[in-house]
Design a protein around this nucleic acid. Structure first.
Lengths: 259, 259
DNA sequence: GTGGCTATGT
DNA sequence: ACATAGCCAC
């Protein structure tokens, strides 16, 4: 059986909020190392990969592999019942037909309990190759969100160019064009505001802003975001959660005339 | 004639806001003790009972009984003209065909005046029996609203069970089920947050969440709400206003297969 | 001044 | 159902 106690119910709430527009139904794969989720969006352009490590829970217990097939819209309805400081415990049997969620108020005078019906979801196995990226950009997640939202007002897609001078987000649209250029910036006093650019080779790729703005719903989960690029390879947008848990989004670049 | 001056126009505004979705037209019965309203909703499942005592007005004057037949949608349109700190004076003749509403800004530099046409409404007399309830729960009105809204995401009806352990709100729906359990809680420092459960006998009753969430629109009128239950008797949801004025909602329980 | 919550409109 | 804007609390 699974029993996983999460001090911050809102962590799961934010994760589901960030991915429910991309994926309707998906499997949460639980084993002794934690809870993981991989799913493609309906149009098979984007891929979501989340891992919540066992260490992020206290306690965490999962004797054997359990697959929880969840409708994320229904899960979201339940998670909305979590108040800000609630502690969430997830429980499921070994061959579950429902997932049990218990919210305890920190003051302990309120307990809410929900059973969410599960479903069988065909698991298309998603091999996500480990990739050495040509460029990796770390920046404040709020800044990335701002850039995507701003450029989204001008165009449907953005070209991201990383070079040793910095990183440039640019787009062309009917009403005109726009670009934002960032250069490296480190402040030991405020590491959250750092912009770090690693580069082995210049890259220039174009992506759909609709997806990127969607990914940016996860900004609340982490002050920093990592953007990994290689030519002709899907972009990786990574939010690191506490204790080596993470939420990653992959997005195939647009090619040629699509741009 | 009636002349009633209400320091807080928004009191009446909130009351009408809370009941206008249940009742379209109703009589305001005015006499020397105050202004009262009783009405059933269209489907005759819920009943609203409001009393604004004369003491809540200053001054208050009503020589003889006056019945004001009001369309609440029209009244609401007029009350929306009230600003936050406005003082409201209600005036009517003895056999009125209109209700006069005057809004004065507290700084006294603006006066708005409206005359609302009245209508004849057949008064079905509603005898509301005094009941000794098997259980009475007092709790923060915001918390009750939160519970009703959360459970409303899962199901159309809620079962309220009061026992000596506490009170449990539970529901069953297509996507799963949910419950919220509260236990007694008193804090002399913050009496607004108290949860008090009186019980002479355990009760378990099921109600439509559509109506309950509707009642909860009155939450802004009082920090606390009182929920009174007896088996097979309509639920009473009571919001106490200043000076023994009150707004009460009654709701017949669902029985048997309806649940 | 900031953040959370509620209510409302699309 | 989502996003926004106003309100209230911290």
């Amino acid at each position: 059986m699974l029993e996983a106690r999460l001090e911050q119910a809102q962590l799961l709430k934010k994760v589901v909020e960030a991915i429910k527009d991309l994926v309707q139904d998906c499997n949460f794969d639980c084993n002794d190392s934690g809870i993981a989720l991989q799913a493609m969006d309906n149009s098979h352009v984007a891929l979501v990969s989340m891992t919540l490590k066992a260490e992020g829970f206290s306690p965490y217990r999962c004797d054997r592999n359990i697959v929880l097939g969840v409708n994320l819209t229904s899960l979201m309805k339940v998670l909305r019942a979590a108040q800000n400081e609630d502690i969430l415990t997830l429980k499921a049997e070994d061959a579950p037909d429902s997932l049990n969620l218990v919210f305890e108020s920190s003051s302990n005078d309120r307990i809410s309990e929900y059973d969410l019906k599960l479903m069988d979801i065909d698991q298309e196995h998603l091999g996500i190759p480990e990739t050495e990226y040509a460029s990796t950009i770390a920046m404040p997640s709020a800044e990335f969100r701002r850039i995507c939202n701003d450029l989204n007002a001008v165009s449907e897609s953005v070209t991201i160019e990383a070079s040793k001078e910095g990183v440039k987000f640019s787009c062309n649209g009917d009403i005109g064009n726009g670009s934002v250029t960032l250069r490296q910036h480190t402040d030991v006093e405020k590491p959250d505001t750092n912009i770090e650019i690693e580069l082995t080779e210049p890259v220039s790729l174009t992506f759909s802003l609709k997806y990127l703005t969607n990914f940016c719903k996860a900004s609340g989960l982490s002050t920093q975001v990592k953007i990994c690029l290689s030519n002709e390879v899907p972009l990786l947008v990574e939010y690191n959660l506490s204790g080596s848990s993470f939420l990653r989004f992959y997005l195939a670049p647009k090619i040629g005339d699509e741009e």
